[in-house]
Amino acid sequence: MSLHLVVMGASLGALEALRVLLPGLLEDFSSALIIVLHRDKEESGNLLPLLDTNCVLPIGFPVDKEPILAGRVYIAPPNYHLLIEGDHFAYSMDEPEDNARPSINVLFDSAAETYGANVTGIVLTGMLQDGARGLAAIHRHGGAAVVQTPHDALAPSMPLAALEAVPSAQVLTLVEIGKFLAKMTH
């Protein structure tokens, strides 16, 4: 798989974090950025317009079996697990994992299995520990692991759990993660 994926997970504090990160992405962004946010399922309608206003890249919920393209931002819609399946997306309504659907672990696991070293996993602010197991899977398959600096995060538990699972992960503040992403260009 020559396409490079950046998979990102965030929970409490996610919208604030994305308002910092997304404006930093420019048209020459060469990866596909795929984001799981834990949201209340009824809020979905408000989510996209909010994110769209400060992102120059095409951003949206993928439809089932939609091909994954570089230079785009994909958001997992509420109430479904979003999975990577070869060159396209897939959905499932399996039971929530760690009380989450969409689950960061489910996205990360499927990305790691298909894309191996061509995956960067990023765990941002959030309560509980979703994303830790998935980040370990990405690391095990040769991908890069990045975790938001816990004291930089509104809710440090997800970053702390991720660091416990992958102690060698790069630890970056939100601003540094923005710069890290901005370097992923053609």
Binding site: I84, E85, A90, Y91, D94, E113, T114
Partner: peptide, 9 residues
């Protein structure tokens, strides 16, 4: 069946 979610189940 779609292989990724099938394998998980």
């Amino acid at each position: 069946y779609a292989p990724t979610s099938l394998k998980r189940r």
